[in-house]
């Protein structure tokens, strides 16, 4: 992490931050997605002198920011549908190119449902054509806008409104959740990264890098949800940091399908430290929980730590 010198300040810490998502929107207290979106769009705005247009998938972020007759966006902003943000962004980018506005960069953004489930077809199409769009997923690992139902990105064993633990049923099925960054990498797009709202300097750096690359870019931001995950709103940053420190949310960058850099964990913690404060995992810490259930998520964390070199000073290929 950079020194806290005046010049090393984040966009968010400067007095002239663009404030692209203004206060007064209707997000819940402690919303990780609102913070993530503000940081992302502010950083992009600053990096290219305000020459951005944003396309938003349906979801919490859209609903809390654009209820007529108010709207919180200080950038040209389009909401079309739930599953088509990447395709609509392709159209916006083409229009900019064809009307002499090549300098305007296009960002598409959505939650995990709009990205890994219903929007995956259009996202994959955008990647495959290498369209000039930065797609940002704010991942809170369930359909929060409709009342916390399971998505394809829901972490294994999590309790959601459609995966309520019951008897021997221990919550969301034992998949690891669809990890979109790896799917993005399989398309061999120029740039893929993961980021966390617990590390704003790192997040801003990745957005600044991504927005200046031509072609398809994908940044996957981990954004805890106090309502859906069941923890106090004041703990959002702490929960986000524990996800990173446990290894359950690895921070890395990839170019053309290959991991080029990962961020080593400053202080590795057991998965339990991240999981236990959240009500969505409370059933894993009751009595008579089978050993393999309790260990399952720790095994994923360990595997991430090995795979992305999170213990050993990270991967440094650049």
């Amino acid at each position: 992490m950079s020194e806290l010198t005046l010049g090393g300040r984040t966009v968010q810490a400067t007095s002239d931050r663009p404030n692209t998502l203004t206060s007064g929107h209707r997000a819940c207290q402690g919303c990780g997605e609102a913070l993530g979106a503000r940081c992302v769009i502010d950083a992009a705005h600053k990096a290219v002198n305000g020459k951005i247009a944003v396309v938003n998938a349906t979801g919490c972020l859209e609903v809390f920011s654009c209820a007529y007759p108010e709207n919180s966006w200080g950038v040209p902003w389009l909401h079309s549908l739930f599953g088509n943000a990447a395709a609509a962004a392709t159209g916006v980018a083409a229009a900019m190119r064809l009307s002499g506005r090549e300098d305007v960069r296009v960002i598409a953004q959505g939650g995990d449902g709009g990205t890994v489930d219903i929007g995956m077809g259009t996202l994959s199409g955008m990647f495959e054509r290498n369209d000039d769009v930065l797609y940002v997923c704010y991942d809170n690992q369930a359909y929060m806008n409709t009342g916390v139902q399971r998505s394809g990105a829901t972490l294994a064993l999590a309790r959601t409104a459609t995966t309520l633990p019951n008897g021997s049923y221990m919550g969301s099925d034992r998949k690891t959740g669809k990890f979109m960054p790896q799917i993005a990498m399989a398309h061999e797009i120029p740039y893929t990264a993961t980021a966390s709202i617990s590390n704003i300097p790192d997040l801003e750096e990745k957005i600044e890098k991504a927005i200046n690359i031509r072609g398809a870019k994908y940044v996957h931001v981990h954004v805890p949800c106090p309502l859906g995950w069941g923890y106090p709103p004041s703990e959002t940053i702490k929960i986000a940091r524990l996800a990173v420190r446990s290894g359950l949310f690895p921070l890395f960058e990839a170019e053309y399908g290959k991991v080029v850099k990962s961020l080593p964990i400053d202080e590795i913690v057991p998965a339990e430290a991240y999981l236990k404060p959240q009500r969505r995992f409370a059933h894993l810490f009751g009595k008579n929980v089978p050993r393999d259930e309790a260990d399952f998520l720790q095994n994923i964390a360990d595997s991430n730590i090995r795979k992305y070199g999170l213990k050993s000073g990270g991967i440094q290929n650049d």
């Binding site: 088509n84 395709a87 609509a88 392709t90 159209g91 229009a95 064809l98 009307s99 077809g121």
Partner: peptide, 19 residues
């Protein structure tokens, strides 16, 4: 594009951006 949903969505994006 990869589907009709995308075909009309690309047109929606382009038309929204003024072409």
């Amino acid at each position: 594009v990869e589907s009709e949903m995308a075909a009309l969505s690309v047109a929606i994006g382009a038309q929204s951006a003024g072409v």
